[in-house]
Design a protein around this nucleic acid. Structure first.
Lengths: 149, 149
DNA sequence: ATTCATGCAAAATGTTTGCAGCTGT
DNA sequence: ACAGCTGCAAACATTTTGCATGAAT
């Protein structure tokens, strides 16, 4: 089953369970959010994109819908320290996505590393902790911004 | 040399280098920040603590001083997704401090894991990236909040 | 018919800035 | 004396909320 469909299904189940409603706005935000080309979209970026399809939409709906996605573990909130909150799709099994963040120029490089994953899971299970998402973020100076190259 | 002294020295050197000034407020904030019992203090918590020692202090000074600490790589900004920015001392060599964060009750459990450290450093060096700080954060449900125990 | 969602505007929250006066060098 | 710092208040940015209307069940 395709990822998007899995997600759609998860959302629909949550909506049914909680007796919420499926609306045009939620569907638009869903498709824009999960098809966003870069990961970690800001609220403003998402708002602008959605506005093109549904010009009367307000920020409140974006916020409320992202909150809904968070509640059903489909979206995840991040903050890289530049003051703008970003959201990204929660990864399903087998997807990885960690970050190197340059504190000088703000460049974000993604990487994945199975071993880090592995030991993270080990720590979690020792603590009887059920992991929904994880972050590995390394902050520092990227190759262009290093002080002593 | 004690950690606090190392930090004090780092700050003094930065102040000297940049021709800044050592002030009563900065010293108070320094000692409150680095002696804060929990890690990751919020701006508000720090403000309240400092206010007891220096009642006329304003939020602006706290913000400006934390920014100063960030500039000299003594403090680090975090955000666990609850809307409040938190700051913590940057760890020196040999200190580790990663997190399990419960998305239901907000409980934060610290852990350290040398292997995660190790592989993180490896990824960084492959990317010619100079790491100043890192985060490993696992988000999910703690043992008390797990849905299926 | 009922319950929930939306859009708008207002309010709340968190953070930054301008400036006059004060302090450290 | 000078440059930088502080405290205050105002400005700003982001997020949340109240409410009347509209849409989905």
């Amino acid at each position: 089953m395709k990822l998007t469909n899995k997600r759609k299904k998860a959302l629909e189940e949550y909506i049914a369970k909680k007796r919420l409603k499926s609306t045009r706005q939620r569907n638009i935000i869903f498709s824009e959010f999960f098809s966003y080309p870069g990961h970690h979209v800001t609220v403003e970026e998402l708002y602008e994109r959605v506005k093109k399809l549904s010009p009367k939409i307000g920020y409140a709906t974006i916020y409320r819908t992202l909150k809904l996605f968070k509640e059903c573990d489909l979206a995840f909130e991040r903050n890289f320290g530049d003051g703008r909150t970003r959201f990204e799709p929660v990864k399903f099994e087998g997807e990885h996505h960690d970050h190197l963040i340059c504190i000088a120029c703000g460049k974000i490089t993604e990487f994945e590393n199975q071993r880090i994953e592995h030991y993270s899971r080990e720590v979690a299970s020792k603590n009887n902790f059920e992991v929904i998402n994880h972050k590995v973020e390394l902050y520092g100076y990227c190759s262009s911004c290093r002080r002593n190259k």
